[in-house]
Design a protein around this nucleic acid. Structure first.
Lengths: 142, 142
DNA sequence: CACCGAATCTTGAACCGTTCCAGGTAGCGT
DNA sequence: ACGCTACCTGGAACGGTTCAAGATTCGGTG
């Protein structure tokens, strides 16, 4: 069974606070969200939370491995609950919609680059670009 | 033999102007550069070029396929001359250094995602993360 | 070779997401 | 219950990028 948000925080050495619980629950609902969206959703649950607090919380959760930050070129930072399972993303060139893509290879780093010029690689981040179903329909509208 | 910068521009339907020639030559020298670096390098060749012009030129070159824009999470936009050959990048987590990595698979999109949720994928962008040779040495300094 | 329309460049300011700062507040171990 | 910190608040600052209006230049035409 999945642990409660409170247990998650404690087990990762983080203090349990209302903003953190709220952010965790918003992320747990799934999807990829901008900081602003998260802030708004959190404010529906709590009376008021500063933008700064949301950034801090998201930073803390990311560092603890409870959230993952992605940043597709041209977009603001997005956060998602899935972290540590090495999955990837498809981004729509037209509307920016993001969806998860399972890692077809397996373990991280799931790709073995040939010559890396001496770099010590620990992760391979893959971003697929294309058109989401909705934008395929209205292709001419760009 | 490789075409001159002027021929490149003309063959891609772009007007030949001093700023464009200068930017192309800076990029042709290789590497991955920020807009600001490019602007400075260009100003060594021409008397003065506005920052805006550099952005416009880089945008035009990217659209024409003469330059490629990459944007590793946490960095400003970088531009490089190699475009259309579907190669990838390694980024140093410590200093941000970027190096090219040949595509191990071949044709674009060089990865075949399994389930893409209906997305029509046309490109797979791979970013490897790790430590560059220099930063491996001073690992403790972070 | 002069002319014209469209593309391009200049200057200067606005924008947006993110981060920094100083101070008050609240979680949690003792 | 107390104190140490980590955390949250509010407001201002920042950097990269983009927008806007107008002058200039490119390149095809007559």
């Amino acid at each position: 069974m999945s642990p409660t948000s409170e247990e998650l925080l404690r087990s990762h050495g983080l203090r349990v606070t209302r903003p953190r619980l709220a952010v965790l629950e918003v992320l747990a609902a799934g999807g990829h969200h901008e900081v602003d969206e998260i802030a708004q959703a959190v404010r529906l649950r709590l009376d008021s939370v500063s933008t700064q607090a949301v950034y801090d919380v998201l930073g803390a959760l990311s560092r603890a491995g409870l959230a993952r930050r992605i940043e597709p070129a041209g977009s603001a930072a997005l956060f998602e609950a899935r972290a540590g399972d090495n999955h990837h993303h498809v981004v729509c060139r037209s509307c920016g919609e993001v969806a998860d893509v399972e890692c077809a290879v397996g373990e991280a780093p799931c790709l073995d680059p040939g010559a890396t010029g001496g770099f010590e690689v620990d992760e391979a981040e893959v971003t697929f670009w294309g058109l989401c179903p909705a934008c395929q329909g209205r292709r001419a509208d760009d």
